[in-house]
């Protein structure tokens, strides 16, 4: 880890003023579960670290008639222990429960989950977000891409977005609250993430001097929802593929559907084709499978990860069936 100066502001105004105008000069510290590893591996070498945990306004989980507010500093434990989340937003609850380490659940925050960096092993070894060697050769397409993207990698970013919460938030049409020098703004969860075009960019729609302050999830309004993750181990492990689904149901009939996949693309992947395939139909094993087929119809697996197409299909199917109950 490179030396840095440390500052712990108490308001978001102070925090934002302490950030830089270029990525990488200053990093934001919340739970620390990702940032410390990134710094230890010299993937990021900030000169200043701004700890957000002193900002009380960023904490808390609150449920009301208008919906759910997750403070950016709410920990996974805070989310899991909230009975309203479990009752109304099982898609969120299951995504958080899938982080099977109590230590990570105690430390990890909502904002950190959204802004954590990719786990791509080439990126983590220092070859950059786009994973190129010194000759500019892209390492992922003909390298070991067993855990890489099967969708959305046209831009040259092959990593998968690692967020646990994002697919659920997208399925539930959540908004992400952001604060910066120009004040507060909100971004649809579905628009928050992006595939970077270069190593100096980030995977989310923030300016270097903006921070995530909160996540706002609309009232469930009868939307049945679920998350299904395909994970190999019970021990702390990344899902190989995951899907979150929210359905407006009349009996078994789908009036509206929002479906998002995790760990399959550089961004959490909204599966519009699967939604269309499901709307107007009754949820059955067959219609769920057909929606899953539609979700992955455009998949372009790399040399070693065709199996992830199958896993993603299973995740979509099982999430639909779980949501319908």
């Amino acid at each position: 880890m490179q030396k840095f100066e440390y500052v712990s502001p108490t308001t978001k105004e102070q925090a934002v003023a302490l950030l830089g105008e270029n990525w990488g000069d200053v990093e934001v510290l919340a739970g620390g579960t990702d940032l410390l590893s990134l710094m230890k591996d010299y993937i990021t070498t900030p000169r200043r670290v701004v700890n957000l945990k002193g900002i009380a306004a960023l904490s808390g989980v609150r449920y009301s008639a208008s919906g759910l507010r997750l403070g950016a500093l709410a920990t996974f434990d805070d989310v899991l222990s909230n009975t309203a989340v479990r009752r109304n937003y099982p898609a969120i609850w299951a995504a958080v429960e899938g982080v099977t380490s109590p230590q990570i659940r105690a430390m990890g925050t909502v904002g950190g989950d959204l802004c954590q960096r990719p786990r791509c092993w080439y990126y983590r070894a220092g070859y950059g977000l786009l994973a190129k060697d010194e000759t500019g050769h892209a390492l992922v397409p003909d390298g070991d891409n067993r855990y890489h993207a099967i969708l959305g990698h046209n831009s040259g970013a092959y990593f998968v977005n690692p967020s646990s919460l994002a697919p659920a938030l997208i399925a539930l049409a959540a908004k992400i609250g952001v604060y910066g020098p120009k004040g507060a703004r909100q971004v649809d969860a579905a628009e928050f993430f992006r595939a970077p075009g270069g190593d100096g960019e980030r995977e989310y729609q923030l300016s270097p001097n903006e921070i995530v302050t909160e996540v706002l999830v609309p009232a469930p309004g009868g939307m049945k929802n679920a998350t299904y993750e395909v994970r190999q181990r019970e021990a702390l492990d990344w899902p190989l593929a995951s899907a979150s689904v929210a359905l407006k149901l009349t009996g078994r009939n789908v009036g509206a559907a929002r479906i998002a996949l995790g760990h399959v693309a550089p961004v959490p992947w909204r599966a519009g084709a699967a939604e269309s395939a499901l709307v107007g139909k009754a949820v059955t094993e067959q219609t769920a499978a057909a929606a899953a087929e539609a979700a992955l119809a455009d998949a372009k697996p790399l040399s070693r990860n065709a199996y992830k197409v199958q896993l993603a299909r299973v995740a979509v199917k099982r999430a639909i069936l779980a949501a319908a109950g």
Binding site: W121, E234, A235
Partner: peptide
């Protein structure tokens, strides 16, 4: 993380 060992539930 990716050199994977079994956990107590595995």
């Amino acid at each position: 993380e990716f050199y994977k060992l079994a956990g107590i539930g595995d």
